[in-house]
Amino acid sequence: MPSFKLPFGRARQEYPPNLWTKCPDCAEMLYNKQLDKNQRVCTRCGHHFRLRADQRIAQLLDRDSFREQDANLESVDMLGFVDQKPYSERLAAAHAATGSRDAAVWGPGTIAGTRVVVCVMDFAFMGGSMGTVVGEKVTRAAEHALDERLPLIIVASSGGARMQEGTLSLMQLAKTCAALGRLGDGGVPFISVLTDPTTGGVFASFAALGDVNIAEPKALIGFAGARVAAGTIAEELPEGFQRAEFLYDHGFADLVVPRAKLRETLLGLLRYMKPSAQVERAGQNGSSPLGRSAQLFDELIRREPTHG
């Protein structure tokens, strides 16, 4: 803030920004405390504000149940990438601004006592972009979910692959999809929650591959940025293009769920989406499904043959 005041400055201070936030959709001035209480959803029009990873985790998981893993992973500038600034400077600035080391957080936790593995992306850190660290965390979350036979929930919020890591970012698409392939083959379910925005290489990899895909209302979800799409083609973009409801209408999201209902929706799904008894990996870990034969039989008949 400048140290001098404009003559009418005081009148404009009616809504100090540390106390109030303007809704970008309906322009309502929202009292921050109330906005937080309403899970950062506009009380007037239902606009869903973006969440930091810790806010999302607090909303979804049981209090104090989350155990963050690999919080100490940091991105490395392998290419010596310089655009308008060196990548290493961008990383340091993002770290200083957000207090986070990168754009994803993962760990085990519980939802109403049900054990799950969650990975939550954080748009505040370099637009949630996926470089090696984000790819590594998503992959470790999937590998842990497979090892522990716990359902996996990933909450995506990302502009796509991190350009500053070049094709090493692109390779994270393969790394994460490979891990999800093994998870599915192992009979462990994956729920993908797509929030504003989920685009580019993140949508075109793990985020699109949920056994169930849930989108938040009006979230921007698409492959190409709307500007790229508009630039490449001459046609007008249709109304609601690349929004959550567009995805739902075209069959790529199972549910569009307002934030207030997300936790209970996940809980409801988890009652059906339990990891199968150890069918394909039987013998690998020594744990035997014996004694659960009735349940195993039940699951065997219901199981889809393959994930792909």
Binding site: A174, A208, E235
Partner: peptide
């Protein structure tokens, strides 16, 4: 990247091909 591609789920198609 056009609307026809998005409507038919190009991101899902790419992700599934990779997987």
């Amino acid at each position: 990247p056009g609307p026809a591609s998005e409507e038919r789920g190009v991101a899902e198609a790419i992700a599934r091909a990779i997987m």
